[in-house]
Nucleic acid binder design. Structure first.
Lengths: 192, 192
DNA sequence: AAGGCCACTTTACCTATGTCAAGAAATGCT
DNA sequence: AGCATTTCTTGACATAGGTAAAGTGGCCTT
């Protein structure tokens, strides 16, 4: 069952079972309780995590001390604060479990070893990063072109786990609106 | 003068003059007139561009046919539609010169050759991508946490060339507001 | 069972930004 | 130079979403 996790996440045309086995052997299973932190603001990231079970979020604190959720990571996705991990800079983001969760950790040094010894993971890595960049850009564009209620509808449609598992306040800040506004949008969706 | 362009852009701890010379030799100088396209929506990108002179923008068409400027690329920066170039997918973005410009083009195949033969450019590439990801995330966060006039002030402060060289409508869509709103913000900034 | 806390909702009011339409200024074209 | 087109500004009005404060209900703790 963890095997299919690795297969799903590390899928790439150049990937083969031998490489995959080596990759998997460098991951370690970690059990998380709700609200546990995987990375705290100000610390430098030294690992990333594959999510087997549960929901993870990234958040920052804005200048009024409000928590802004910037990403949700669902099952079969990767929680990786790229700019801290690859540039060895203190993170401005926090990574925290929203629910109880099971994740697989791989340390930077082990990844770095793989990256230098396997073409498959290098190519996979570049593709993963470009996919992340694409998603982040899409999200920016949607913040501009769609209304808050449209954004909420899209979230329900495309990532229902988030709407089911995360508290309203986190979803609201992810959508870029106040929690009372999300509450109002929910109400209008029911009555109309 | 083009040499310092390559030095600035391809700077990385592992980079050395020999590598840099090989890299530079695979770029080709291209002269652009205002409004020329480097990539059109629906086409698959097969190159990226270093900007020596002038201003370049990325834009998408939203569902009402409005152009939304998603990025401005200034001098000594790179114009690269990553997800089209590296995943060979049709681009949803357009890349167009805002002013007359001089850029240096490198084709995907040549880059790919470098990427496989030089550790320096591989590491540089990963760092560049993670930098891009960071910037894009920062921009999303600012769209949520800052008001339109704050965003405009930040743009004036951090990237004045854009404010000087791009037309108001493009700047407004980049800031995520209507052009009339940006005009009003400008007025308020003068009188207050 | 009682108190306390948290997540969510609701209401009233406020403000930033959008929309539309008109005019002024700048730029480009022949 | 002169006309056309685009760019920018302005004003009146509309609306999505913000803020603050109070209310409801659930759940945990003792």
């Amino acid at each position: 069952m963890a095997d299919t996790l690795f297969q799903k996440i590390y899928s790439h045309p150049l990937m083969n079972p031998e490489d995959l086995e080596i990759i998997a052997s460098l991951h370690q299973r970690v059990i998380l309780s709700k609200n546990d932190f995987l990375l705290r603001e100000g610390k430098t990231s030294n690992a990333y995590y594959l999510v087997e079970k549960g929901l993870i979020r990234f958040f920052v604190n804005d200048f009024n001390g409000q928590e802004i959720t910037t990403q949700f990571i669902c099952e079969n996705e990767i929680a990786n604060e790229v700019s801290s991990l690859f540039q060895h800079l203190p993170s401005i983001q926090n990574i925290q479990s929203v629910t109880d969760a099971v994740v697989w950790k791989i340390e930077f040094n082990d990844f770095q070893y793989l990256y230098h010894s396997m073409e498959s993971i290098r190519e996979w890595g570049r593709e993963w990063m470009s996919g992340q960049l694409f998603q982040t850009q899409q999200r920016s564009i949607e913040m501009i072109t769609h209304s808050a209620s449209m954004r909420y509808l899209q979230l329900i449609e495309h990532r229902p786990q988030i709407v089911q598992q995360a508290p309203l306040k986190q979803i609201a800040s992810y959508l870029g609106i106040a929690d009372t506004s999300l509450s109002r949008i929910r109400k209008e969706m029911i009555t109309n």
